[in-house]
Simulated assay, not measured.
Amino acid sequence: MSEITPVFLPERRRYALDDDGNLIGAAHFRDFSGSAGIERIFFHTTVDEKYSGQGLASVMVKFALENTIAGGAKIVAVCPYVKAYVAKHAEYQPHLVATTPEHLKALPSA
């Protein structure tokens, strides 16, 4: 059995879960130049259905948030999963920026 690891794919503007070369999850983001400097807008998180229920989304999101903070960026939680995650983990509160209409305009169209 392979080890599933979180990875940062800046060229694809996402964090992902890698299972032996197969990407089985993603936390999509857009960087935004805001009043707090670089603000990373997390807007969509997915995990392949075959891997659901294993806590992998939380592993990936924790990795993404820690990487974002380490890089000096702030967090904008638009994705419902990321919103719920940061609400349960108070250590991320100092790194959050409230979502604005400008953040939402910066996101790709559905």
Rank of each mutant, 00 (worst) to 15 (best):
residue 108 P to W: 05
residue 96 L to H: 13
residue 94 P to V: 07
residue 30 R to S: 04
residue 106 A to R: 13
residue 18 D to M: 09
residue 44 H to G: 06
residue 29 F to S: 04
residue 38 I to V: 15
residue 54 Q to S: 04
residue 74 K to I: 08
residue 85 Y to G: 00
residue 53 G to V: 08
residue 8 F to S: 15
residue 76 V to P: 00
residue 84 A to T: 13
residue 32 F to N: 06
residue 1 M to C: 06
residue 105 K to C: 01
residue 45 T to K: 02
residue 83 K to Q: 13
residue 50 K to I: 08
residue 35 S to D: 09
residue 94 P to M: 09
residue 10 P to R: 15
residue 97 V to Y: 03
residue 54 Q to P: 04
residue 71 G to N: 11
residue 65 L to H: 01
residue 41 I to N: 14
residue 82 V to Y: 05
residue 25 G to Q: 03
residue 50 K to M: 05
residue 3 E to C: 01
residue 34 G to V: 10
residue 27 A to Y: 07
residue 66 E to M: 06
residue 64 A to N: 12
residue 44 H to N: 14
residue 84 A to M: 13
residue 41 I to Q: 12
residue 72 G to H: 13
residue 38 I to E: 13
residue 24 I to L: 06
residue 97 V to P: 02
residue 107 L to A: 07
residue 66 E to P: 04
residue 59 V to E: 14
residue 99 T to C: 15
residue 3 E to T: 11
residue 63 F to K: 09
residue 6 P to V: 07
residue 78 V to N: 09
residue 6 P to D: 10
residue 108 P to R: 07
residue 58 S to W: 10
residue 100 T to K: 07
residue 105 K to A: 14
residue 6 P to M: 10
residue 75 I to S: 12
residue 3 E to L: 13
residue 102 E to N: 07
residue 52 S to I: 00
residue 43 F to K: 02
residue 71 G to S: 10
residue 19 D to P: 01
residue 77 A to L: 05
residue 6 P to N: 10
residue 54 Q to I: 02
residue 30 R to C: 07
residue 21 G to R: 08
residue 109 S to K: 15
residue 62 K to E: 15
